[in-house]
Deep mutational scan, measured.
Amino acid sequence: HSLRVHINGKDFEVHNADEHVIRALEELIRRGADADELKEFLERWKG
Protein backbone atom coordinates (compact mmCIF):
# COMPACT_ATOMS: atom_id res chain seq x y z
CA HIS A 1 0.00 0.00 0.00
CA SER A 2 1.00 3.56 -0.46
CA LEU A 3 -0.03 5.96 2.23
CA ARG A 4 0.15 9.73 2.38
CA VAL A 5 0.19 11.31 5.79
CA HIS A 6 -0.15 15.06 6.21
CA ILE A 7 1.72 16.33 9.27
CA ASN A 8 2.41 19.95 10.14
CA GLY A 9 1.97 21.06 6.55
CA LYS A 10 4.31 18.36 5.26
CA ASP A 11 3.32 15.32 3.27
CA PHE A 12 4.91 12.04 4.22
CA GLU A 13 4.74 9.38 1.56
CA VAL A 14 4.78 5.89 3.01
CA HIS A 15 5.45 3.30 0.33
CA ASN A 16 4.97 -0.43 0.69
CA ALA A 17 3.35 0.06 4.06
CA ASP A 18 2.15 -3.27 5.35
CA GLU A 19 -0.97 -3.71 7.45
CA HIS A 20 1.12 -3.67 10.63
CA VAL A 21 2.53 -0.23 9.91
CA ILE A 22 -0.83 1.19 8.90
CA ARG A 23 -2.52 -0.21 12.00
CA ALA A 24 0.23 1.18 14.24
CA LEU A 25 -0.15 4.58 12.59
CA GLU A 26 -3.94 4.53 13.02
CA GLU A 27 -3.50 3.56 16.67
CA LEU A 28 -1.14 6.51 17.23
CA ILE A 29 -3.64 8.86 15.62
CA ARG A 30 -6.49 7.42 17.67
CA ARG A 31 -4.46 7.99 20.84
CA GLY A 32 -4.08 11.60 19.79
CA ALA A 33 -0.38 11.47 19.01
CA ASP A 34 1.00 14.83 18.01
CA ALA A 35 2.80 15.58 14.76
CA ASP A 36 6.23 15.01 16.29
CA GLU A 37 5.31 11.53 17.46
CA LEU A 38 3.88 10.61 14.08
CA LYS A 39 6.92 12.00 12.29
CA GLU A 40 9.24 10.08 14.58
CA PHE A 41 7.29 6.88 13.96
CA LEU A 42 7.45 7.32 10.19
CA GLU A 43 11.14 8.17 10.21
CA ARG A 44 11.88 5.16 12.38
CA TRP A 45 9.82 2.96 10.08
CA LYS A 46 11.57 4.24 6.97
CA GLY A 47 14.78 3.41 8.81
Rank of each mutant, 00 (worst) to 15 (best):
H1L: 07
H1N: 14
H1W: 03
H1E: 15
H1R: 14
S2I: 15
S2H: 15
S2G: 12
S2R: 14
L3I: 15
L3E: 05
L3S: 04
R4T: 15
V5L: 11
V5C: 04
H6W: 07
H6Q: 09
I7V: 07
I7Q: 01
N8E: 05
N8Y: 06
N8Q: 05
G9H: 01
G9N: 02
G9A: 01
G9V: 01
K10N: 05
K10P: 00
K10L: 04
D11Q: 09
F12C: 02
F12E: 02
F12P: 00
F12L: 03
E13A: 05
E13L: 09
E13R: 03
E13V: 14
V14H: 02
V14K: 00
V14T: 02
H15Q: 07
N16M: 06
N16A: 07
N16W: 05
N16H: 10
N16G: 08
A17M: 09
A17C: 02
D18Y: 04
D18P: 15
D18N: 10
E19V: 12
E19L: 13
H20N: 12
H20K: 13
V21G: 02
V21C: 03
V21F: 11
V21S: 04
R23F: 13
R23W: 12
R23I: 07
R23L: 10
A24Q: 09
A24L: 10
A24I: 09
L25W: 06
L25H: 01
E26T: 14
E26S: 10
E26F: 15
E27D: 11
E27N: 11
E27M: 15
E27C: 13
E27W: 13
L28T: 01
I29N: 02
I29S: 03
I29A: 04
R30W: 12
R31N: 10
G32E: 04
G32S: 04
A33H: 05
A33F: 10
D34E: 12
D34H: 09
D34L: 08
D34A: 09
A35T: 12
A35R: 04
D36Y: 10
D36K: 08
E37S: 08
E37K: 09
E37N: 05
E37W: 04
E37Y: 09
L38C: 02
L38F: 11
K39G: 10
K39H: 14
K39T: 14
E40R: 14
E40G: 11
E40S: 12
F41W: 11
F41Y: 08
F41P: 00
L42S: 02
L42V: 13
L42Q: 02
E43V: 14
R44C: 06
R44L: 12
R44A: 10
R44F: 10
W45E: 02
W45G: 02
K46D: 07
K46M: 14
G47A: 12
G47I: 13
G47E: 12
G47M: 13
